[in-house]
Design a protein around this nucleic acid. Structure first.
Lengths: 350, 350
DNA sequence: GCAAAGATTTAGATCGTTACAAAAGCCGCA
DNA sequence: TGCGGCTTTTGTAACGATCTAAATCTTTGC
């Protein structure tokens, strides 16, 4: 006698085979839409599949076929809108390809990164998309994920050297060129005393952006005073606090290239508090083009990186790698696009 | 002769058993830390596990044990910072419990929600956390996920009635009470003509928030003019555009309870453009307490919902359900906390 | 009417792990 | 020596799918 409640054990291939009177193999063929099976048999089996509410067990199939239908996505900070957009892009593309996203958030901690990777790898993802925590090391990552599983590095390089047999793809943002564009734009606007504001020196993206700034300044023959480089936490609050450090020595800068939008918005806040109107008395540029940048007053000139499109791109890249494990490793540097708004007006004096 | 490249097929239990000269069963016991195995054997096996770089195949184990070590997380809009925070909270708690998060983002489309759920369910998650797309229907969801897999509904109710045998947990925000608190706060500040601004009438959270507003107004004996309810897309831009609609009839309102923070920030933008200074000439409240709320000028009075903590809570709830499938279904309504800042000053006249 | 060719179907092994019950080893003690 | 009572170890059958090769069943050609 059958249970009355709708809660019963999962229905499998074998159940369907039994109640249609065909073999498991045939049901399996039907499931996969094989042209081998007879029309009538197919119809009969499909009816039974629906009737019993069969759901495919992809894990079992993957085990047998030695394939995978998932990709692990490990992010250093999911709560950050930039990465949230990125994740949405990844999931969108993976989903369309029939893959499922295994999520892992490390909260910028190397220990958690190790733990998360170790846990995810046990679920046998076909590949890994990793935006490493600051200070994460190639050897360590390799030790926990092994050389079997393709890995795509996003946003940051790993510390240490990675063995060349581990061909890992990389997708980076062109931080240096982006910051150079911003700096060149400020220079073209007529600014001569330009600061580099915010970020931590030990962050690789900060170093790259600073390098771009230096490049543009040097090329233009402009000098950089040491007090024009101010380090901050990459947050609005800390940036607002440290605004004053730009104005301790005369002559003060008339513009600042900021590490990112959060810092830029914080700086604008700090400027307001000092009675300076950003965009008129002092020019500011950001990096990232967060949603808010377009709506701040003044609207923020910044560099758009297209996080959602980067996510799609990362997903596409890793999917290609699954099909072509031995293809050359790719190294994509995605351009950052300068979006000129109101915060980067010419200096007042000119 | 062994392959020279480090790329070789995955090492399994059987490999370890063969090269240590014990049975697969024993290796399995070692892996699971069983007290049955002899110290020396354990040491020998563990050494070999490390030497060969063995990684546990959880999918195979789950198949055999008929268990699951994953939870599906399906969100209507991952790119929204609120849900990104929520996802981070979910993943944090699931990860700590040894579970992995299967991510799915539906982009507020019912069709994609169906597709995503259908795909995820094939991977056999132990449970599902679902923040449904607007207009999603209980029958449909039930049809694709079945009654076997526990489901926790977050943020929104489903349309249609769900069969009582599907005991689905629910975790909702107290939208109504939150909006009531905001309205009461404005009333306490001395406002009498208060509008409800933004959001779509067919969104359930908007309806609930509006209900809270009506409740407070009615309780205070205040009247509500019909032109004081303005519908907008839940975006800053549209909100800024529609600001004028509040001022078409005299007497105009002196304050507005906004559907959410994005709308409130947009409204403040619109007010500025009309020469009204929000927080002085016109009071505004939001909902969500996004990061920006604390930094806008004026800082936004709003309702904090603690998305990250909600994520943790959702994860805890579904984990409990996995252990106790037959326990009573839970229905949690998380309170929203009023955060008073500068945007909700008393009216100028008083 | 019968064999060869083609169309369908299927038994049985297998993927990497765990559960079960039974088998070894080992020890002390009668 | 033999036997109960430990501690360890292990063969074998699952889990739910797929693959392979072979077995059926139909046609078709002559």
């Amino acid at each position: 006698m059958e249970s009355i409640t709708p809660i019963r054990r999962k229905v499998t291939l074998t159940d369907i085979a039994a109640s249609t009177g065909v073999s498991r193999a045939t049901v399996s063929l039907v499931l996969r839409g094989s042209p081998l099976v007879n029309k009538l048999t197919r119809a009969k089996v499909e009816a039974e599949l629906r009737r019993q509410g069969y759901v495919y067990n992809r894990a079992a199939a993957n085990l047998r076929r030695r394939t995978s239908s998932s990709i692990a996505l490990v992010l250093n900070e999911l709560a950050n809108p930039f990465f949230a957009e990125f994740a949405a892009g990844v999931d969108e593309t993976l989903g369309a390809a029939g893959f499922v996203t295994l999520l892992g958030s490390t909260g910028e901690s190397i220990e958690r990164e190790q733990a998360v990777l170790a846990s995810l790898i046990e679920h046998g993802p076909g590949g890994i998309i990793l935006s490493p925590a600051e200070g994460s090391d190639a050897q360590q990552v390799l030790a926990t994920v092994g050389a079997q599983t393709p890995l795509l590095l996003f946003n940051r390089e790993l510390g240490g050297s990675l063995p060349e047999f581990a061909h890992w793809d990389r997708l980076m943002l062109d931080n240096q060129r982006g910051a150079r564009l911003a700096t060149e734009h400020l220079i073209a606007q007529g600014h001569k005393r330009i600061a580099f504001f915010g970020g931590h020196r030990d962050s690789s993206s900060c170093r790259q952006r600073h390098a771009g700034y230096v490049e543009a300044m040097t090329a233009a023959g402009l000098t950089m005073a040491s007090q024009w480089r101010v380090e901050t936490a990459p947050t609005r609050l800390d940036a607002a606090h440290r605004c004053g450090e730009l104005f301790t020595h005369e002559p003060a800068p008339t513009a600042a290239v900021c590490y990112n939008d959060a810092v830029a918005l914080g700086l604008m806040l700090g400027l307001n508090q000092r009675g300076l109107q950003p965009g008129r008395d002092f020019a500011v540029t950001g990096f990232d083009d967060v949603a808010e940048a377009a709506f701040s007053t003044p609207a923020l000139t910044t560099l758009a990186t297209g996080p959602r499109e980067r996510g799609r791109q990362a997903a596409r890249t890793i999917l290609v790698r699954l099909r072509e494990p031995e293809a050359d490793t790719s190294f994509i540097v995605a351009p950052a696009q300068l979006v000129v708004r109101e915060s980067s007006a010419p200096p007042r004096s000119s």
